[in-house]
Computed example of a mutant assay.
Amino acid sequence: MRRSEFDRAVRDEFGARGPSLVSDLVLSAVGDRTATEALAAGEPPRAVWLALCAETDVPLARRHGAGRLEPRRS
């Protein structure tokens, strides 16, 4: 997962409350840091995304493949 995919996944899953979750919610799975802090420290975006999903009870079906663009159709 790229950082742009992380940002898209957060926006798609959490909408307007996404930015506050990323900057305020402490995630134990990434060293008791916020998503913003974890990403700045070099944690992979996929690990931060999965930690955020686990902490906010996002269903498993919506965790994997999140943030990816749909393939272009010819």
Results as ranks from 00 to 15, higher is better:
residue 45 P to F: 01
residue 22 V to E: 14
residue 2 R to K: 15
residue 10 V to K: 09
residue 5 E to M: 13
residue 60 L to T: 09
residue 13 E to N: 04
residue 64 H to D: 14
residue 31 G to H: 01
residue 7 D to N: 14
residue 8 R to W: 03
residue 17 R to I: 12
residue 22 V to A: 12
residue 65 G to K: 09
residue 48 V to D: 05
residue 25 L to E: 13
residue 64 H to M: 07
residue 15 G to Y: 05
residue 39 L to D: 01
residue 74 S to L: 14
residue 33 R to L: 04
residue 9 A to Q: 08
residue 57 D to Y: 10
residue 62 R to C: 11
residue 32 D to Y: 01
residue 24 D to L: 12
residue 50 L to D: 10
residue 64 H to W: 10
residue 63 R to W: 02
residue 49 W to T: 01
residue 44 P to C: 01
residue 8 R to N: 11
residue 46 R to G: 03
residue 25 L to Q: 14
residue 65 G to R: 08
residue 12 D to L: 11
residue 35 A to E: 00
residue 47 A to G: 01
residue 27 L to D: 11
residue 23 S to H: 14
residue 54 A to T: 03
residue 46 R to A: 12
residue 10 V to M: 06
residue 1 M to N: 10
residue 18 G to P: 09
residue 6 F to V: 09
residue 63 R to M: 14
residue 66 A to R: 10
residue 63 R to N: 07
residue 63 R to A: 07
residue 74 S to D: 15
residue 48 V to C: 04
residue 13 E to Q: 13
residue 71 P to H: 08
residue 53 C to Q: 04
residue 20 S to N: 14
residue 52 L to G: 05
residue 13 E to Y: 00
residue 24 D to K: 15
residue 43 E to S: 09
residue 65 G to T: 12
residue 29 A to V: 04
residue 15 G to W: 03
residue 33 R to G: 01
residue 3 R to P: 07
residue 29 A to T: 08
residue 65 G to H: 06
residue 44 P to N: 03
residue 1 M to W: 12
residue 4 S to C: 11
residue 11 R to C: 07
residue 20 S to P: 05
residue 28 S to P: 01
residue 33 R to M: 05
residue 19 P to G: 13
residue 51 A to W: 02
residue 53 C to L: 08
residue 9 A to W: 05
residue 20 S to L: 11
residue 64 H to G: 09
residue 72 R to N: 07
residue 35 A to Q: 00
residue 31 G to K: 01
residue 38 A to G: 02
residue 12 D to Y: 02
residue 50 L to F: 09
residue 48 V to R: 05
residue 3 R to T: 13
residue 6 F to P: 10
residue 19 P to V: 08
residue 74 S to P: 15
residue 27 L to A: 10
residue 36 T to L: 03
residue 44 P to L: 03
residue 14 F to D: 08
residue 32 D to F: 01
residue 48 V to T: 05
residue 2 R to P: 08
residue 5 E to R: 14
residue 20 S to K: 15
residue 29 A to C: 02
residue 16 A to M: 09
residue 45 P to G: 05
residue 18 G to Q: 09
residue 60 L to G: 13
residue 69 L to V: 01
residue 40 A to S: 05
residue 4 S to V: 11
residue 68 R to F: 03
